[in-house]
Computed example of a mutant assay.
Amino acid sequence: MSTASQEIGTHLDACLAQAVAADARMADVAAVIAACAAAAIDVSAVIGRGALGGDLAAQGEHNSDGDVQKALDVLAHERFTEALRGAPVAEVASEEAEGVMVLNPGAPLAVAIDPLDGSSNIGVNMAVGTIFGIRPAVVRAGDPIASFTDPGTAQLAAGFITYGPATSLVVTLGAGTQIYTLDREAGAFRLTHPQLTVPAQSNEYAINASNARHWDTPVKAYIEDCLRGTEGPRDRDCNMRWLGSLVADAQRVLMRGGVFLYPGDNRKGYAQGRLRLLYEAAPVAMLMEQAGAGATDGERRILDIAATGVHERVPLVFGSAEEVTTVATYYGGRNPAAGRSPLFGQRGLIRS
């Protein structure tokens, strides 16, 4: 969706109408985005009430991954599923459902969605979000997940919603990445960032440093060199950011650059990281690439990876193009110098 001719403040519906006028094939995709936007407004209102609306962090059943669902996880899943039922969506793959859900058999589109990203932030007034990718529906006899096994390049559109101080919809229809901000008084999303361009270079990186002892050699080497600042091979000081919410970290990167890393590590069950390819990594990767950034698993382009299961995991590195390329060089060389600093070596800072 190109918004070059749209003014800041234009309503989402008007921008979607313009995209459909330019290419009638986008009508179904536009309808799905509109449905997601409507559900997001509803969910945003619930989140905005916080504890006044009840205990949104109350624990319930387990989801597809065995994680304990919170009340807001379930609510978001229900609201988005219902909204997508009224759109031209044949199937939905949701983090909160074990298998593919059939909504409207014969409809042209399929949606992969994480209805509530950042569940650990529920109840403490920090940013959470929703992530989705829109794909063509595929029918293949004997294959119930056929719509979701093509590489990420098959996505027709992608987006995420950030429920923070403001609620924003970040979206691409394959012609740039835009941000729409919720006008609470009007009850509608309005264009605030017509064309995002991620700076190619940045001094910011985001990673969960508490897992440092579990990282593999390339990640240790890269982060060590960032920490060494002007005294190290990167010859510049870096700042670390980590919000514990993929959408919040992704929006920061989209707006001011930087690199985000959620690598695989040596813990049991973490060899491929913890992020899901279909409804987290692939949509974010499309948004990044449409803003001039990059997204890999450390070595491979995320959008070239085909899923073999609905809840398949993948390591994820995204952000400023030069920085993503730099991370790849550490993987490519399997840098043997990793761990040379006392920060990651066998002899810690306070060990003798």
Rank of each mutant, 00 (worst) to 15 (best):
T3H: 13
T3I: 11
S5Y: 01
G9N: 03
G9R: 04
T10R: 02
L12T: 09
A17R: 12
A17N: 13
Q18V: 03
A21D: 10
A24N: 06
A24V: 13
D28I: 00
V29D: 00
V32W: 05
C36Q: 14
A37G: 14
A39G: 15
I41H: 00
I41S: 09
V43M: 02
S44D: 15
I47D: 02
I47M: 04
R49Y: 00
R49T: 00
L56F: 01
A57W: 00
E61A: 14
E61Q: 12
E61T: 11
H62K: 15
D67G: 03
A71E: 09
L75F: 12
F80N: 06
V89P: 02
A90G: 03
A93M: 11
E95A: 10
A97L: 13
E98H: 12
G99V: 10
L109M: 04
L109W: 01
V111N: 04
A112R: 04
D114T: 13
P115D: 09
L116Y: 01
G118N: 03
G123V: 02
I131K: 07
G133C: 05
G133A: 10
R135P: 00
P136F: 02
A137T: 01
D143Q: 11
P144H: 08
F148S: 05
T149G: 00
G152L: 06
G152M: 05
T153V: 12
A158N: 10
T162H: 00
T162R: 07
T172P: 05
G176L: 10
G176D: 08
Q178D: 12
Q178N: 15
I179R: 12
Y180E: 04
F189N: 07
L191Y: 01
H193K: 14
V198I: 15
P199E: 07
A200C: 05
A200D: 13
S202P: 02
E204G: 00
E204D: 08
E204H: 07
E204K: 08
A206I: 04
A206T: 12
A209N: 02
A209M: 14
N211A: 13
A212V: 06
R213K: 15
D216L: 11
V219T: 14
Y222M: 14
Y222H: 07
C226Q: 09
L227F: 11
G232T: 07
P233L: 13
D235I: 10
R236V: 11
G244Q: 03
S245Y: 01
L246M: 11
V247Q: 01
L254P: 03
L254T: 09
R256E: 15
V259S: 05
F260M: 12
G264D: 06
D265T: 04
K268T: 14
Y279Q: 10
Y279C: 10
M286K: 15
R300S: 13
R301C: 11
A306P: 10
A307L: 01
G309H: 08
H311S: 09
E312V: 03
R313H: 11
V314L: 07
P315G: 11
L316E: 06
G319T: 10
V324P: 06
T325G: 09
V327H: 06
A328D: 10
G332Q: 14
G332E: 14
R334T: 06
R334E: 08
N335T: 11
A338K: 02
S341H: 08
S341N: 10
L343Q: 11
R347H: 12
L349V: 14
R351S: 15
R351E: 15
